[in-house]
Amino acid sequence: MRIELKDLEFRYQMNTPFERLALHDINLAINPGTYVAIIGHTGSGKSTLLQHLNGLVKPTKGSVVIGDRTIEAGRKEKHLKGIRKMVGIVFQFPEHQLFEETVEKDICFGPINFGVPEEEAKKKARIALKLVGLSEDILEKSPFDLSGGQMRRVAIAGVLAMEPEVIVLDEPTAGLDPRGRKEIMDMFYQLHKDQGITTILVTHSMEDAARYADEIVIMHQGSIFQKGTPFEIFSQPEQLIEKGLDVPETVRFQLKLQKELGVRFDHPCLSVEDLAGEVKRVMERGSR
């Protein structure tokens, strides 16, 4: 399913003294099956942008095309449920949305709301639970008796069980330990690879953006500052640094080495392996 944002503008609390421009001049197309990372400073509008992707907020100007639906500014929209089923959002700290008595009921909540019969929803819950790496014996437990990391996984399973075609992730690993972080990021990537789920990730980690994404979108003060493949984006790291944004540690290291050693790298390295190989090559070339 293709998603497209056209000339989009969004203001919070329109027509009040508290009005606030959060997004403007947004043009963005997300093709089916891609993995897009959205990065940018706090307050740059990332979360607001995400909420347009399944009609949680409506643009105050411009339009959002989601599959065969168009949400346009100033028009009353009904029956957005269809869209919400296809575009699942994992919010920041998703464990805050848990509420049912048992893990199973909580995971089934989404699917049942979208009209899936109970028995089938339970089957989906089991599959989703396996995906997030939890065992079935917690199904009957209360979600509030779990550890923070487990709660996070249950909440994610609740979104996966809806079997969305597009999954939107707002900093899904904040507060987890390094292993938990890696496991969850790898899980989403695997899902994206295996089932071709379109994935949109908001993150502050340039390393994750570089490692997983096909395309990176950089937000700055409510509009899109740059977009391109990780390779393209990190080929010009100076632009990012100028805007006060981070670059992946590998790229940062390359810059330092270039300056100190007076050598040039042919391309930005996005993994430690690649960087080690390049450093070796560059140094050998330099010595000849």
């Binding site: 909420q51 399944n54 949680l56 009904k78 919400r84 919010f91 805050h96 949305q97």
Partner: peptide, 19 residues
């Protein structure tokens, strides 16, 4: 703020608060 966030999260899970 919290209320708004949770409403949005549940809306995304198919709850309809307004109709």
């Amino acid at each position: 703020e919290e209320t708004e966030k949770i409403m949005k999260a549940q809306t995304a899970r198919g709850v309809d608060f307004s109709s």
